[in-house]
């Protein structure tokens, strides 16, 4: 093997258990996996791969979202027309917009199914309780991303959905009015609100979610991979 390849891949051909292990934990992208996984753990029916699929939809949403950002201006005169241009003028724009939209729906569904799977498997039990809490935060982040993305097309549905949503915040006792004012950056759904939701949707929430996912997966790995019932128990 030549020196350049050796400097990148620092283990031998994965034909022994040792080299197979090295292949996983010397690789940045694979090291989220535990070095050793049980066959039971990687069976489809064990997890239905719901966590991984949630992460996959997040990846699709990041890529399509960045591509949509090349055409979209978060301003009142342009937002709606840019959205229409993406649908009718931009090459493959309608494909990317719909991919973003359907992936967003899928992500919410997959995260919920993942949560249900984890609950019924009992995988939230010690020592994994705090990872369940992180999971709930990730669910909240997913829902907030859907909600902030809802305003960006700047059509009637977007406008009234966010009017209704911020009025729910308004109903919080004592500080509700201030929360609504801060969310919108004003007294109504206008250009400040659009810009605020755009920044939250494109920067703040995805960054927070990425950190949360990293911690979530890291903790699974540190607990020895996904939760498995003891084979002899009748649980």
């Amino acid at each position: 093997m030549n020196r350049v390849f050796r400097s990148i891949v620092r283990h031998g051909f994965p034909d022994t258990n040792r080299n197979r292990s090295l292949a996983v934990f010397t690789n940045f992208f694979l090291h989220i996996h535990p070095v050793k996984a049980r066959l039971r753990a990687i069976r489809l029916t064990q997890t239905w791969y719901l966590g991984g699929l949630s992460a996959a939809t997040f990846f699709i949403l990041t890529v399509t979202g960045i591509l949509l950002m090349f055409y979209y201006h978060p301003s009142v005169p342009r937002a709606y027309e840019d959205m229409k241009d993406l649908e009718f003028v931009v090459s493959a724009g309608v494909f990317l917009r719909n991919l973003h939209r359907w992936s967003a729906h899928m992500m919410v569904a997959l995260v919920l199914l993942h949560m249900i799977r984890v609950f019924f498997a009992g995988a939230y039990r010690p020592p994994r309780e705090f990872n369940w809490v992180i999971g709930v935060m990730l669910l909240l982040g997913t829902v907030l991303l859907s909600y902030t993305g809802y305003l960006l097309p700047w059509d009637q549905l977007a406008f009234w959905a966010v009017t209704v949503g911020t009025n729910m915040a308004d109903a919080v006792p004592v500080i509700g009015g201030d929360i609504k004012f801060l969310m919108l950056g004003g007294n109504g759904v206008n250009e400040n609100a659009l810009l605020r939701f755009y920044v939250l949707h494109c920067v703040v929430l995805p960054a927070a979610l990425l950190v949360g996912i990293a911690v979530h997966v890291w903790r699974v790995r540190k607990d020895g991979g996904i939760y498995l019932k003891k084979p002899e128990s009748n649980e």
Binding site: F181, L182, G185, G186
Partner: peptide, 12 residues
């Protein structure tokens, strides 16, 4: 931080 996010002038 909250003060920064609180707009002082509104063009409403």
């Amino acid at each position: 931080g909250v003060q920064y996010l609180w707009p002082n002038v509104l063009f409403e």
